[in-house]
Computed example of a mutant assay.
Amino acid sequence: MIAFTQQQLDAWLLQFLWPFVRILALVGSAPLFSESTIPIRVKVGLAFVLTVAVVPGLEPPPPIPPGSYAGLWLLGQQVLIGVAMGFTMRIVFAAVQTAGEFVGLQMGLSFASFFDPGTGANTAVLSRLFNIVAMLVFLALDGHLLVLAALVRSFDTLPLALIALDRNGWGILAQWGQTIFVSGLLLALPLICALLTINLAMGILNRAAPQLSVFAVGFPVSLITGLLLLAVVLPQAAPFLEGLLRDGLRTVSEVVAGLAGQ
């Protein structure tokens, strides 16, 4: 009969607890994994399976009781690390959704919105379309596997120990936030310029022929032109999205290194 002591059971529990918390924090915040359409039990099960696969290659964690102040601090650190990595990739998709908002505003589709279960709020139709395209590119590039690979490497850079998280990591994450506006505007810039030209042409036409109702003519023209431009520009956006996703994955590693003070 095989017997286990309470001390051995506690050691085995701690060996799985701290990595599980970090992995679960990333699964709950990273794109694709954190979709609200995925049941919570599936997310927890995925985190558990990943933990079982990762733990054998990790260094033994420090023998810190989970209920102590040190254990709670270590628990909070793992949550912050996982959320920081997931939020870094989430910014990439926020930039894509921002581009959809810009284009929808120029096309006159800013009022066309519906409830998005992923964000829990009303989202413009074009933002949802752009987000789906970005998610397909993300899957085509095996981005979900690359995120998990970055998570495994984070245990080498930030081991399971009571260490102070360097503020440089949070600075890198805050600086990466400018991608929402910069990359979002760059992605939407071709459509914005074309639709702005259409609006200027409608304004000149209204001055040349005041009897022509620009509101009755301008909206259908802007909408049809925008849809035609979307059919031309959106398939060509894959290289831009690929570069944006690769920048996001590189920033994940930089944030982890920054938190480690490297």
Rank of each mutant, 00 (worst) to 15 (best):
M1L: 13
A3G: 09
A3T: 10
F4E: 10
A25D: 07
P31D: 02
L32M: 14
S34V: 05
E35V: 13
T37E: 14
G45P: 11
F48S: 12
P65M: 07
G67V: 13
W73I: 14
Q77G: 08
V79D: 04
L80G: 09
I81L: 09
F87G: 11
M89T: 03
Q97C: 09
G104Q: 02
L105I: 08
S110Q: 15
A112L: 08
A121M: 11
S127Y: 01
S127N: 00
F130G: 06
M135Y: 14
V137K: 04
F138Q: 08
A140I: 06
L145D: 11
L146R: 15
V147S: 11
L151E: 04
V152D: 07
V152F: 11
L160C: 02
L160W: 05
L165P: 06
N168F: 12
L173R: 02
A174Y: 09
Q175M: 13
I180R: 00
V182K: 12
S183A: 15
P190S: 03
A194T: 07
N199E: 12
A201E: 02
A208K: 02
Q211M: 04
V217K: 00
G218S: 05
F219V: 06
A238I: 12
A238H: 08
F240E: 06
L241F: 00
L241T: 00
R246L: 15
L249Y: 01
E254D: 15
E254S: 14
E254C: 10
V255T: 02
A257E: 12
G261A: 01
G261N: 00
Q262G: 13
